[in-house]
């Protein structure tokens, strides 16, 4: 499990969402509501000090997908 996925899973645990794995689908397996997903994005923005554009939501299904997108944004910011 990569570092970013771990961060996301920890944030989900703080949101009382247990049993998340990198392969868990946000809306499918974890059954997150839209507000919870927005809350997750906001927490990750604060944690990683990066702005996550809403367009990312079109590309992510699983925790790993979100981790990959956030990692790309963080690397882009540091370049």
């Amino acid at each position: 499990m990569d570092h970013m996925s771990e961060k996301i899973i920890k944030v989900l645990k703080d949101m009382d969402i247990e049993d998340a794995t990198p392969e868990s689908s946000l809306m499918g397996d974890l059954e997150l509501e839209s507000l919870q997903i927005y809350e997750l994005l906001a927490e990750m923005e604060a944690l990683c000090s990066v702005r996550i554009p809403e367009r990312v939501l079109l590309k992510v299904d699983t925790v790993q997908d979100l981790a990959d997108e956030i990692t790309k944004l963080v690397e882009k910011k540091h370049d």
Binding site: S25, S34, E54, R55, L57, L58, K59, V60
Partner: peptide, 18 residues
């Protein structure tokens, strides 16, 4: 998950937000 459902889950929240 088949392709149709994949589209449902992967794209839906962004599309509905718009």
């Amino acid at each position: 998950m088949d392709d149709t459902k994949q589209k449902t889950v992967k794209n839906v929240i962004g599309m509905w937000s718009a």
